[in-house]
Simulated assay, not measured.
Amino acid sequence: MHLSSIHHVAIICADYPRSKRFYTQVLGLRVVAEAWREARRSHKLDLALPDGGQIELFSFPDPPPRPSYPEACGLRHLAFRTPDLDACVAHLQRHGVEVEPIRVDEYTGRRFTFCADPDELPIEFYES
């Protein structure tokens, strides 16, 4: 078996317009496709990352809350690589996003920080 990269990450949101705004206007991801799926009463938004990966943003009626704190089994967080963490943090703060203090990875020496998306999904920004 040969795996070459992550194709996409799927995220279910509680408030579709709010999450769409966060991922497109705050994070700056490009819309590839958007659809309303009547049978599921669900939006599906495909967003492009610069490396070819995608984020799929879904809305479903009344999704249960995501257990994050304390951390639950399953996907822990979504991480984005950035060449300039300081510029990334400044951009997020200009958009009113609360960002944790910058930390240093004890194993790699690289700087990183976290924020949360509108549904409290932890998002990491890793400088490399």
Rank of each mutant, 00 (worst) to 15 (best):
Q25E: 14
R37Y: 15
F22P: 07
L45F: 10
R18S: 11
R37M: 15
Y69K: 13
R40P: 05
R18C: 07
A116S: 15
E38R: 14
W36F: 15
R103F: 12
I55E: 09
Y16S: 09
S4E: 12
F114T: 01
F112T: 00
A90C: 06
V32A: 12
E71V: 15
A90I: 03
S5N: 11
V32L: 13
R94V: 07
L78H: 01
D51V: 03
D119K: 12
S19W: 02
P83N: 00
E127Q: 11
P64K: 04
C13R: 01
T82P: 05
G109Q: 08
P50T: 09
R30C: 05
P67A: 11
L47K: 08
D51Y: 00
F22T: 02
E127W: 01
E34T: 09
P118N: 10
L78G: 02
P64I: 05
P70V: 07
F125G: 02
A90N: 08
I12E: 05
I102G: 05
V97A: 06
P122G: 03
S4P: 00
I6C: 00
T113V: 07
P65Y: 06
R111K: 10
R18L: 12
E98Y: 11
L57E: 02
M1T: 07
R21V: 01
A87T: 05
A72S: 15
V26H: 04
F58I: 08
P118M: 06
T108I: 02
E56F: 09
P64H: 06
D15Y: 06
L78F: 02
D51P: 05
R94M: 02
V97K: 01
R37P: 00
G74Q: 04
H95P: 09
D105E: 10
H43P: 04
V104W: 05
H77W: 08
E34C: 07
M1P: 13
F22V: 07
L49R: 07
H2I: 12
G53F: 03
P118E: 04
R81M: 05
L75M: 14
S59K: 04
E106L: 13
Y23R: 06
V99K: 02
S128N: 09
Y126I: 00
H77K: 05
P61Q: 09
E71T: 15
H95D: 07
I11A: 06
T113M: 04
S59P: 08
P64F: 07
K44R: 13
S128T: 12
V97Q: 01
D62Q: 09
E120T: 13
R66I: 11
S4K: 11
R40T: 14
I12T: 14
L27F: 09
P64N: 00
R76Y: 14
F112D: 01
E106D: 14
R30W: 06
I123A: 03
F112P: 00
H2D: 10
H43N: 15
R21N: 14
Y107P: 00
V89K: 06
A72N: 11
Y69I: 14
S5R: 12
A10R: 08
I102L: 09
D117N: 10
R40N: 14
R81T: 08
Y126D: 01
H91S: 13
F58S: 09
L85I: 07
R76P: 01
D84P: 00
Y126H: 12
